[in-house]
Amino acid sequence: MSANPVYYRILLNRDDKLQIACLQDFDEYEYDQAKFLTDDAGQKLRFDDEDEARTWLNATYQRNRIEKEDQLAGVMAEWRSDVGEVIHDDPASSTSKRVEFTFDALSFATLSTMTQEGQYSSMADCVRESLLVNHTFQQLARQGFTEVIVRNPQSGAERVVVIPRLQLVAHG
């Protein structure tokens, strides 16, 4: 492994567009440090993989803010300021809506992990399935079912999963 591994940061360029910079520790000083995007704690975002940086960038910002070479091809869910804001109706389908969300760094990392570990084809697929599961739990809660019990089929051990929102739905 190299003593100076390659990594990626996202920065605001001279044209006020966001772009991905491929860096090594020794050449980062050549950039204006104030131009790098940071997380909520003020730490510069760092990605070990260019695809991960590009996915994060395109899932977090509108396409018109991103340098063309860093835009993902095709239609992708964009995540931005107002949770659940419909930003685009797909003209090809009267049942499709394009929606933007904002995620804090931890929530976005969780979504990324869920997408990878669940082997979803996209973050949008992961969100869609999560919505269906949550909707199913809410329907059951309205019928009085508020406890979720999971069982390990090999050992027979059981665990109760506490989902606080189910109590609100059941009693609300």
Rank of each mutant, 00 (worst) to 15 (best):
G74P: 08
T55Y: 04
G74E: 03
Q19H: 00
R80A: 12
V6A: 11
Q62F: 09
W79C: 06
V75R: 14
A34Q: 14
F26G: 03
F47Y: 06
E69R: 15
T102Y: 14
W79D: 11
E100M: 06
R80P: 00
E30Q: 08
E100F: 05
K35V: 00
R80K: 07
A105T: 15
L106R: 15
H88M: 15
A34G: 10
D40H: 14
F36S: 01
E100D: 05
K68H: 08
N64D: 14
T102C: 08
V6C: 11
A92L: 15
D48Y: 00
D25M: 08
A77V: 09
T55H: 06
A92D: 15
L18R: 07
R14P: 08
L37R: 08
E30A: 07
V6D: 12
E78K: 08
N13P: 06
L23K: 00
R63Q: 11
D104I: 02
F47D: 10
S81G: 15
L37F: 04
R46G: 09
D15Y: 02
D32C: 05
D90Y: 12
R65K: 11
F47A: 01
Q62W: 05
D25Y: 06
F26D: 10
D15K: 05
M76T: 12
D90N: 13
Q19R: 03
G42R: 13
A53C: 13
A41W: 10
L57F: 00
M76Q: 14
N58A: 07
S94R: 05
A34M: 12
K35F: 00
R80C: 10
Q71A: 01
A21S: 09
E30I: 01
H88R: 15
R14I: 12
Q19V: 03
E50K: 01
K35Y: 02
L18P: 01
E85P: 00
L57V: 07
A105K: 09
Q19P: 01
D40Q: 14
D40W: 05
E85V: 07
E85S: 09
E100K: 03
A73D: 13
V99F: 03
G42A: 10
T55N: 09
K17W: 04
S107N: 13
N64W: 10
K17C: 10
V83C: 12
D89Q: 13
I66R: 01
Y7Q: 06
M76L: 11
R54W: 00
N58K: 01
H88E: 15
G74S: 10
D48V: 00
F26N: 10
I87G: 11
D49K: 01
R65D: 04
A53V: 09
D90E: 11
E78I: 14
T102E: 12
W56T: 07
D27R: 13
D51I: 04
D51M: 04
A77W: 02
F103S: 06
D89K: 11
D39Q: 06
E69D: 12
